[in-house]
């Protein structure tokens, strides 16, 4: 864990709630361009975005390239303190969802099923646009639902 970032009392990373929206705006822009131009450049952009999702998912949001770009811009342009902070778990899960669908797209391109690949890219694009323009994070909501189900099952497994 990088020491210059905010954490809660249990040492878990806290992020500025504006960060994921900023990242989603970049993701949406790149994927929109990819979807329009397609071809090798389009697939290249999807591969780049896959790498961004992979870093954020596996290494954590402290290492997310878009997140760090946001931190740099925040310092450079003095955007002020975060309006609120949140734990990284839910947005990191959302990045994992993006990674999963982007993987489907790349596998489809490799297998020659370009149409399937572009449909998968359109799904990621739609969810990024939703987060960037309205702040609704579908992946984050899925994380909360999944967590509740998992905890419920664990509790049900315990002897009464």
């Amino acid at each position: 864990m990088r020491s210059d970032l905010a954490t809660d009392d249990q040492g878990r990373l806290l992020i500025d709630v504006r960060g994921p929206r900023f990242g989603a705006a970049i993701t949406a822009t790149l994927l929109a361009i990819a979807l329009v131009v397609q071809g090798p450049l389009g697939v290249g952009l999807v591969a780049w975005q896959w790498l961004m999702f992979a870093i954020a998912t596996l290494a954590g949001l402290a290492w997310s390239p878009y997140g760090n770009l946001f931190r740099a811009l925040k310092r450079r342009f003095d955007l002020g303190p975060p309006p609120a902070t949140e734990l990284e778990a839910a947005p990191r899960f959302a990045q994992a969802c993006g990674l999963a669908v982007a993987t489907v797209a790349l596998v489809a391109f490799a297998a020659g099923a370009a149409t399937v690949g572009w449909i998968a890219v359109a799904v990621v694009l739609a969810l990024s646009v939703l987060l960037a323009t309205t702040g609704l994070c579908v992946g984050c909501e899925l994380y909360l639902v999944g967590q509740r189900l998992r905890q419920g099952r664990r509790r049900a497994d315990e002897p009464a």
Binding site: A32, V36, L125, V129, L130, T133, G135, L136
Partner: peptide, 25 residues
């Protein structure tokens, strides 16, 4: 085809944004 896809993407972005605004309301 590039122009067609551009129009589709712009329309899709607008649609998702409107949907999101309705949900947020």
């Amino acid at each position: 085809p590039v122009l067609l896809r551009l129009l589709l993407v712009v329309a899709g972005v607008a649609l998702v944004t409107l949907l999101g605004l309705a949900l947020r309301r």
